[in-house]
Amino acid sequence: MKNPPAYHHSFQNLQENDLGFEQVFERIVSFMKGDPKGNFRLMVGTDSQVHKTHTLFITGIVIQNKGNGVWACITKMKFPRKMTHLHERISLELSLTEEVVSMFTEERKNELIAVVLPHLYQGATFTMEGHIDIGAGKRNKTSEFVKEMVTRMESMGVEPKIKPNAFVASSYANRYTK
């Protein structure tokens, strides 16, 4: 399933509802401009939860300024059936992450980099990560998918993170799937 079902993206957090991606991007830019010498990590990850009649997917976008706070939001997608096959579910989680990552076009990424660029010598940094809710541990049911999913992330030019470092997928988004 290369292209997940297209749906209207509406983002939300505890402060605001029904944000379009443009507004989300503006929030990220102004968060970064608040401390342009910061160490920023832009992270996108998806988690899912199987319910009786549907499967809920939550994609989180988190911009973290190490040691100086974070701004975050989520978007939800309800899939109209129980998705019991792990590979299918993880693959769709990744497709939804890819979809949101692709909204950060080269132009937009350059706009974010431009915020920290004048301050690189003062230690400012910017990285973008894709968080995948899988682990490579021997006892982990998802370990066999790691290579495939990590490769998909890398091909998008995003640094892949898996458990225990994939906290956007495994804890931030996870909170909203219940």
Rank of each mutant, 00 (worst) to 15 (best):
K2H: 09
P4N: 13
H8R: 11
H9I: 13
F11E: 09
N13C: 06
N17H: 10
N17M: 11
F21N: 10
E22F: 15
V24W: 05
R27G: 04
R27S: 15
I28T: 02
S30M: 10
G34S: 15
G34E: 03
G34L: 07
D35M: 08
K37C: 02
N39L: 07
L42N: 05
L42E: 00
M43P: 01
V44E: 01
V44M: 01
V44G: 02
G45N: 04
T46V: 10
D47C: 11
S48L: 10
S48Q: 09
V50F: 02
H51N: 11
H51Q: 14
T53P: 01
T53A: 11
H54Q: 02
H54T: 01
T59R: 08
G60T: 07
G60R: 07
I61Q: 09
Q64V: 02
Q64K: 07
Q64F: 02
Q64C: 01
N65K: 06
K66E: 05
K66M: 08
N68R: 11
N68K: 06
V70H: 00
W71Y: 14
I74N: 09
T75G: 10
T75W: 03
T75F: 00
M77S: 13
M77T: 07
M77F: 15
M77L: 09
R81N: 12
K82Y: 07
M83F: 10
T84L: 15
L86V: 12
E88G: 03
L92F: 15
E93Q: 04
T97R: 02
E98A: 11
E99V: 00
E99D: 15
V101A: 07
M103C: 15
F104T: 04
E107R: 08
K109H: 03
K109V: 09
V115S: 02
P118I: 07
P118V: 02
P118W: 08
P118G: 06
Y121S: 12
Q122G: 07
G123H: 05
G123A: 07
F126L: 15
E129M: 10
G130F: 09
G130L: 13
I132K: 11
I134H: 05
I134S: 12
G135K: 06
G135I: 06
G135D: 00
G137K: 14
K138R: 10
N140Y: 04
K141V: 09
T142D: 05
S143T: 11
E144Q: 11
E144Y: 04
K147D: 08
E148W: 07
E148T: 09
M149N: 04
T151L: 12
M153W: 03
M153A: 14
E154N: 12
S155N: 14
S155G: 04
M156N: 08
M156Y: 07
M156R: 13
V158R: 00
E159T: 12
P160S: 00
P160T: 05
P160H: 05
K161D: 03
K163A: 03
K163S: 01
K163V: 02
V168M: 07
A169L: 05
Y172V: 13
Y176Q: 08
